[in-house]
Design a protein around this nucleic acid. Structure first.
Lengths: 214, 214, 214, 214
DNA sequence: AATGAATGAGCCTTCATTCAT
DNA sequence: CATGAATGAAGGCTCATTCAT
């Protein structure tokens, strides 16, 4: 339920606290992410979050200035952790790996990250562009950074000839990411095999590559 | 913004004040669908809906018994109209058309229906499985009918050998539909060409078909 | 459910109508009395009354100018019919009957009237002095007329020596009437014998009469 | 206006703002009892209750979960306090007191309790069996306990021969209690003498006792 | 770090009533 | 006589948030 993200961009509440805020802080985020993804943001009350975190509503305000800040942080964590996982997975390939292989690695890492931090990422996917103004501003930069990385991968593939020229590149990235993101709505980790899901996605997407292999 | 759906369960009124009648009813649905898809269900108040429909909140209750009933009806209309459009498009093919052609026709019709009734369908997609209990019950039947139709198309394709055997059929339908549905989150009708979007989807999905054509 | 009261003090709605207003009018009163006594005045809506009377709410306004007028008329009918029944029963005695016998006759008639027109009288008892200002004014006169009649019976009994002098006459009338009126809260016509109830009341009240008989 | 009842199911708060604590709770009950008995339950709004208690409506919900819970608690307090007062008064008699004396003591205690906590008991009497389902369930047990106690007193009197055999015992208890309860509708503490009211009640009810004394 | 108590804002809904037809 | 449609008023209740302790 928790996430590997370590640093928090909020200034530490009061007294110097080494790394990232109290345990309560992370607990609140975890609890809130679980509830936001299950019931929605507005449908989850601060009292409910507090109760599940073992405290009363006013206590939450010691750690966060508002409900929206909680959402904002969840979204950031979701996007950043996926961003990080995808980059690491691509960089783990040999330096001269084919662009196609890089994209396939990215697909795998993206799906895996999605379902590893399901509460965070589900919240993130659900609230794409529907969040309150203020939250949107905080998160937009992270989203764009991630989108840019994919655009870069696709550009490399196009340049190398790996990418089929019959495909409209303007539509490609949202289609691919959207397709994967949507799996949070139906893929049940308890009843399926995640690696097989990834293989299916890759098989379905074979249309991207003009030079059929195998 | 409106939809081709005809029947309503209210007995058709005669001739109200001015020229109203069931016109108010449809107007409320249109307005509500637009707001639900843009801001969300809970974030939209009955007062707002009423205001945009040119009346006061209590008047809405003359036509609908609750806010949830409005949502329920929007979801039904969305699903039924897409269902209808897809079936018609498939049935318009020659009786002996290849299963693959049927699926391609279905993809086109689904995407077109999605973006033709964007407010209704966006509401529907956004609230997949997150709607209040009571609403879910009303809509479940329609959703299942539609899902069954796709399963049937895929089964035919598998039987005829059109469908690649390397693809996990359990994951196929949600992946395809999810990918298309997700386009409502990013495809902007004002700035793109819908038919080209469809072609891109079909191209991306070529992995489905083992016998590469062209 | 209906009542023997014939004349209504409301001016006949529009066109001359012989005696008392339409059948609908009486039907509405009957239905309203039943609901007021069962659920209370505020808890009964005009829509409910209309529905049980086989019409829609606005139609009720053809017969009555407001919900309060309906209540007002029910209360009047209840009090007047009991008043009438009690007087008739006393006057049916021989002219020289003992005051005690008159009071006993009045007790019997009061209880009988109470339970014959139970919906009307129950409404009346329940809303003793709790009705909206305007309604109270309309009904006060009727109530006082009836109370005066009992005071007169008691005065006669006191004058004749029938009434025990050890009883505070100031408290007697409300105690007697209250005791009888309260029976509408518990006496179930379907499961008891009304005449026996009356006998029990008379037996309980024997304390009134100092000269024990039988 | 207040009542001797002590326990509340809320955990006793520590020390609120100023000197509140459970004080607000009791204040709300007192205020609500006064308004319910004067205007009725439905006719009293939470906003009114709050205003008379010196707060705003939402604050009331900190102490009670619903308007009905307030009613429920008022009814419980009314019935329990009367129950307690009556029992104590009977138990204060010599152990070998005649059943008749016990009943007379009970009558006195009941009437005194009724008019001592007039707002609570008036609410209770007014809403005999007309309260919302959920409230009825909470209070039924208390009511039955009290009714049973009276039945027991009457049974003792019957067994000892104190009670007149010509009186239908099935009707006796509701007649007696109803008569006393009804006094809340007309007896004005400011203008009468409560002990004299009790004596009048006892005198009126002499019919119960076949062996006339004094 | 936490919380008891309170509150402004606002929401969904119901209701008595109106009015043109 | 009756009603379809609409509305001002108000009601019960929830919520995010505050603040003194």
């Amino acid at each position: 339920m928790s996430v590997e993200e370590k640093d928090s961009q909020q200034p530490a509440p009061k007294k110097g606290r080494g790394q990232s805020g109290s345990v309560s802080r992370r607990l609140i985020l975890d609890v809130a992410a679980a509830m936001f993804s299950a019931q929605g943001f507005t449908e989850t009350s601060m009292r409910e979050i507090a109760a599940k975190a073992g405290m009363r509503a006013p206590s939450v305000y010691y750690h966060f200035t508002s409900k929206e800040q909680i959402l904002s942080e969840i979204l950031s964590i979701a996007i950043r952790s996926t961003n990080l996982a995808v980059r690491e997975s691509v960089e783990r390939l040999p330096a001269d790996a084919a662009p196609r292989r890089k994209i396939e690695a990215a697909v795998g890492a993206h799906v895996r990250s999605l379902h590893r931090n399901i509460h965070y990422t589900a919240t993130s996917v659900r609230y794409q562009g529907q969040v309150p103004q203020e939250v949107a501003l905080n998160v937009r930069a992270d989203r764009e950074t991630y989108a840019d990385y994919w655009q870069q991968l696709l550009a490399e593939a196009a340049a190398s000839g790996d990418l089929s020229p019959t495909i409209n590149r303007q539509f490609l990235q949202p289609l691919i990411l959207g397709s994967m993101n949507h799996t949070i709505n139906w893929y049940d980790a308890g009843r399926g095999n995640l690696e097989e899901l990834i293989l299916t996605v890759l098989a379905l997407f074979k249309g991207m590559w003009p030079h059929q292999d195998r």
